[in-house]
Nucleic acid binder design. Structure first.
Lengths: 108, 108
DNA sequence: TGCCAATATGGCGATATGGCCATTAAAGCA
DNA sequence: TGCTTTAATGGCCATATCGCCATATTGGCA
């Protein structure tokens, strides 16, 4: 039985989005932005990293269409562009909890 | 108003899981494993990469608890460990579609 | 035992990522 | 016009990731 190689292109675009989310600081920011929009300064204080670092993280989220910017004077208000993070987080959460339970069992 | 830095540790475990998913080949494999379990040889043929590469990808998915192995003789059957990928994929899909629509608008 | 098929692992080079510093750009205000 | 605040970008280095090759390792079978 000949197994055909599948075209990976379909998954590349999706992986790019997943990759943008796959960083602790960016996950935190996405989580924060679920509640309300924030400025770079606010996010910088909360994340506790360099301002330039946070700005770059935000541009990564922006590039894949996860967040949006609204400029007001000198400040940039970042806001979530999709209301779909619940599914994402709950999936991650499920995996995490299952894994913790598994490790707990292994200690018995 | 003092903004408190948030402990990132909570997000590190989650980012690790997201990171494991953030690769085209691994996304493809997760998608395949949603339907049924597969051997490394099968996945290697479908993904179209080196066997060692696929094996390493699978160990990454295994390390974070996304998949499971069942050894049968000389073959390893990999299977999905969680039934929660729908939420993940539909989130990604939403972002992807919104972004495509956005780009389409930009061309007008 | 000897051989082959199926997996897993070590190593290595190329490329990507992450974080900071320094700098630039733009807005608000005295 | 200067000074300050806010944000974005370039540069640089350390580290991580990816993919292949080569090499174990394990199971099935003659």
């Amino acid at each position: 039985m000949a197994i055909k190689a599948i075209d990976l292109r379909r998954y590349e675009a999706r992986a790019k989005i997943a990759k943008a989310m796959a960083h602790p600081s960016r996950l935190l920011m996405l989580d924060l932005l679920q509640k309300k929009s924030h400025t770079v300064t606010e996010l910088t204080a909360i994340v506790g990293a360099d301002q330039s670092t946070v700005s770059k993280h935000l541009s990564i989220l922006r590039d894949v269409g996860l967040v949006d910017v609204r400029r007001e004077g000198a400040m940039s208000y970042y806001q979530l562009k999709c209301a779909c993070l619940d599914g994402f987080f709950s999936c991650i959460e499920t995996v995490l909890m299952a894994d913790l339970a598994c490790r707990r069992d292994a200690l018995k």
